[in-house]
Design a protein around this nucleic acid. Structure first.
Length: 415
RNA sequence: GCGAGUGUAGCCAAGAGGUUAAGGCCCCGGAUUGUGGUUCCGGUAUUCGUGGGUUCGAGUCCCAUCACUCGCCCCA
């Protein structure tokens, strides 16, 4: 029986690894520019962290977690990283450092779902979190960093969707009003909506069923949807954010059906979607989570952040970087060529060799296929008489040097 | 958990019940025994995801099973 990678996981190698590194390098550089600091938290945590942090009512906690028991404690592979970062923030007393605290992370996340385009069971996120600032400037900061990142990656066809889901008070009022307005039509709603009605009424409005949408477009629900339910405090912060986004020239699509599936969100929430993805078209998502630090046992601290999906981002990048070598050593003297390779590498020359005694024609062929700029030929003549033959593979010119330093100089000047 | 589709070599594939399973890429060998890129010649599937069935005969039809893909739900 052949063993293959588990469903929803995949191997990343060759060109794809290069694309990952390309994105990670650009992200890291940008985060440093904005003074975000990297944090690395465990890949698994105690299950209760996610149960409390992400929320008992969420799909993630209810059916998507990889959990296991060891010595009477339950652990879970992290399905997302905000809860873990907040746990670390509290445990290590980071709230005692001067505000704001700005952190970023990258790494694998795990959710037990049916894989489809843009969705895997092990997937990777890059994310940022910002603690300690409750005004709209912090929301603007993280959104601007996200937009800047996508700009640096030269991505187009992106849309920033924004909504304000308010504080727990005004949101609860809204939820109850929606539920009340739909009471008479409850039996006509679809099966999914029956569940949404109980678990997350805000999500009702986003149902894809035409029948449900028809109900929502009629009174009394229609006027409930269009009524402004946000309280004054929530509104002020939100307006600050909107003004900054406007002045920064960020195009924003307001979407009052945008609801996040994690319990900790409040206030402004956002998603960045791409037209070039499949059904799972959000490449980045996040929002404010002012209650989370306190919920997990820390001091009352506002927070805001986002995460982007690496696999989805990778599929949007057209990344072409050719592999190349500075030098390929053509030789039938394995020991001498290996020692030479080591020496060259010490001088910042990218070098490889055939590790065989194949005919020189074959080895040159391989040098060419590996996109080497030079071949250094190290055969009987060179070894016995003590010189180096170096061939420029694009021009075909061939030189001999008695000193290795001249050989290296030749390579580096042509690099 | 629900719905749909697809499985032929490392990759892309032709094949529609009839003797030896096209072709292309990659890889390997040779023409060219220490000098590449082009060209030419040759080689690589006892077998079509797996198991069973129908048939004189199955990659092709039927059933089951596994894997993958896409969609719902939900999320990055």
């Amino acid at each position: 029986m052949k063993i293959q990678a588990p469903k929803g996981t995949k191997d990343i190698f060759f060109e794809e690894t290069k694309a990952w590194q390309y994105i990670e390098n650009i992200a890291r550089e940008l985060f440093e520019m904005a003074n975000f600091h990297e944090i690395r938290t465990p890949v698994f945590e105690y299950t209760e962290l996610f149960a409390r942090g992400v929320g008992e009512s969420t799909d993630i906690v209810n059916k998507e977690m990889y959990s296991f028991d060891k010595e009477k404690r339950s652990y879970t592979l992290r399905p997302e990283n905000t809860a873990g970062v907040v746990r670390s923030y509290i445990q290590n007393g980071l709230f005692k450092t001067s505000s704001p605290q700005k952190l970023w992370y990258k790494g694998p996340m795990f959710r037990y779902e049916r894989p489809q385009a843009g969705r895997q069971r092990q997937f990777h996120q890059i994310g940022i979190e910002m603690f300690g600032i409750d005004g709209g400037s912090a929301d603007a900061e993280v959104i601007l960093v996200a937009m800047r990142l996508f700009k640096k990656l030269k991505l187009t066809n992106l849309t920033l969707h924004l909504n304000n889901i308010g504080c727990p008070q005004c949101r609860n009022d809204y939820k109850e009003t929606i539920k009340t307005s739909l009471k008479d039509e409850y039996n006509n709603l679809c099966e999914d909506c029956h569940r949404r009605y109980q678990v997350n009424p805000l999500r009702l409005l986003d149902c894809k069923s035409e029948k449900c949408q028809e109900i929502f477009s009629k009174e009394p629900t229609f006027s409930v949807i269009n009524k402004d339910f946000i309280c004054d405090i929530c509104k002020n912060n939100y307006n600050d954010l909107l003004e900054i986004l406007k002045d920064a020239g960020v195009e924003t699509k307001f979407n009052n059906k945008l609801v996040r599936g994690l319990d900790y969100y409040n206030g402004p929430v956002f998603e960045i979607t791409s037209e070039n993805l499949g059904a799972q078209n959000a490449v980045c998502g996040g929002g404010r989570y002012d209650g989370l630090v306190e919920l997990l046992g820390g001091p009352s601290t506002p927070g805001v952040g986002w995460a982007l999906g690496m696999e989805r981002l990778i599929s949007l990048i057209n990344f072409e970087e050719q592999n190349y070598l500075d030098v390929f050593i053509v030789s039938d003297h394995l020991k001498e060529s290996l020692l030479l390779a080591d020496l060259l590498r010490g001088n910042k020359v990218k070098v490889d060799m055939a590790f065989s005694k194949a005919k020189f024609g074959k080895q040159l062929d391989k040098a060419n296929k590996l996109n080497a700029k030079f071949a250094i030929i190290l055969g009987d003549d060179e070894i016995e008489q003590g010189f180096y033959t170096i061939k420029n593979l694009s021009t075909g010119d061939q030189f001999r040097y008695n000193e290795i330093s001249d050989t290296i100089a030749c390579i580096l000047t042509n690099k």
